[in-house]
């Protein structure tokens, strides 16, 4: 369960934009990247986090994953406040991004062992989990090759193993299929479905509407740092005024822009 309440995140504004091009989120020396964001994600469901580039998705995921601290408001992961006990939250969360790199000079085995140890797994637990994950993700064939010699698909599998090594209850996927071919992308989507059936809570950010249609139970649309829509697929189509999700999304963004203006 993820519970977001009145979340705000502001940064010191370092951009030198001219007043006519000014983003409405800029206010004096501050840039309000997230403003009054509230929603919840029930345990065992998939939430699709949508929004155009610069909407605040990455900032939100960084706050949720405890990389950034909220300026105000709270996020609770299974009842644990991310600001009060970030280490405990990190034990519960897995994070996979499409552009997360690997340690090129290490092998998948060395790298996963490293993350497992940092997550506090003992040797026996680590060996057992690694065996299961490597079998499930078919990593064994290249487990001892250097990461920088692997294909994009293989690298993403290693990244998934890194994300799952500590058996997280909540998993954040940030555009996980970026740069992957159809086969590799399909494997990721199947994995997300499997993880859902295992009862994990998933936050899935993407720009591909077919992935949203296939996977998500609930959608949150962020625009200009605020929540512009929170509901299911049917509600999104209805509110967006189109059965095609792409068009509904664009209409909602338009509505969002009109709303901000």
């Amino acid at each position: 369960m993820i519970e977001v309440q009145s979340l705000n995140k502001s940064f010191v504004n370092r951009s030198k934009t001219k007043s006519k091009d000014k983003d409405t989120r800029e206010e004096g020396k501050w840039f309000h990247a997230l403003r009054d964001v509230s929603f919840s994600v029930p345990t065992g469901s998939i939430l699709g986090l949508l929004g155009p580039n610069g909407a605040g998705k990455t900032t939100f995921m960084r706050v949720l994953s405890t990389a950034l601290k909220p300026t105000s408001g709270t996020i609770q992961v299974d009842g644990v406040d991310i600001a009060k006990d970030p280490l405990s939250v990190r034990r519960r969360i897995g994070f996979l991004s499409g552009n997360t790199g690997l340690y090129g000079r290490l092998t998948p085995r060395e790298m996963i062992r490293y993350y497992g140890t940092l997550h506090g797994l003992d040797k026996a637990q680590l060996n057992q989990t690694m065996t299961l994950l490597f079998d499930r993700l078919e990593i064994n064939a290249f487990a001892d090759k250097r990461n920088d010699h692997l294909s994009a698909g293989m690298k993403q599998k290693v990244n998934i193993a890194r994300t799952l090594i500590h058996n997280p209850e909540v998993i954040i996927f940030d555009e996980p299929t970026t740069g992957l071919d159809v086969k590799a992308a399909e494997q990721i989507l199947r994995l997300v479905e499997e993880l859902k059936t295992e009862g994990r809570t998933i936050l899935f950010s993407t720009h591909h509407m077919h992935e949203v249609e296939r996977l998500t139970d609930q959608i949150v649309l962020l625009n200009m740092g605020t929540v512009h829509f929170n509901g299911n697929l049917a509600q999104m189509r209805e509110k967006g005024g189109d059965v095609l999700l792409d068009k509904a999304f664009l209409n909602l963004i338009g509505e969002g822009e009109r709303h901000v203006a």
Binding site: L87, R90, F95, T100, G101, L118
Partner: peptide, 14 residues
Amino acid sequence: ERGTLETLLLTPVP
């Protein structure tokens, strides 16, 4: 640059 720092910061290590 490699995008590995963020994953390191998300481990339960102060």
